[in-house]
Amino acid sequence: MSFSLTLTLNGAQRDIVLDDPRVTLLDLLRDRIGLPGTKKGCDRGQCGACTVLLNGKRVNACLALAVTLDGAEITTIEGLADGDTLHPVQDAFIEADGFQCGYCTPGQIMSAVGLIAEGRAGDDPERIREGMSGNICRCAAYHGITKAVQEATRRMDAATKGDAA
């Protein structure tokens, strides 16, 4: 039996046929579509390495079954930059050196983009740390991660205010 669905992936429409209803979004991305930027740390929703945006909200791709995502809009780390122009969160991670081995980084960045969109943390470091605590960094680059999210929040705020003015 096969299952077909249509997704918007990083802005482009994709028609997908699956031979198995149990394929996760993470395996779909990594193994079937060839987008290995989203990482697999635990495959059971406990580390955050696989965080992507699903209809603008952050989710663990290892917990989402691909078949349930017909019509969904998905953004992965590969689709975050606008051509050669990095997303403000990506810039901030480089500036704050918010990583060591980099394996958690795609998940951290997608989670940060989601957190900023939720608008709950602002630039308060304690709330940022709480809001980012679903993304484990075994290298414990937490200082840089927090700083990056803080800085990106400020810049994105300033940019929206600038647009509104």
């Binding site: 290995p36 930027g37 480089i94 500036e95 980099g102 980084t105 795609p106």
Partner: peptide, 21 residues
């Protein structure tokens, strides 16, 4: 200086063994 692969890490292009086609 930041890590050498910083731009690759933030764009998901840094390849680990399991990412090699």
């Amino acid at each position: 200086l930041p890590h050498d692969a910083a731009p690759l890490h933030v764009t998901g292009q840094a390849r680990y063994v399991d990412d090699i086609p």
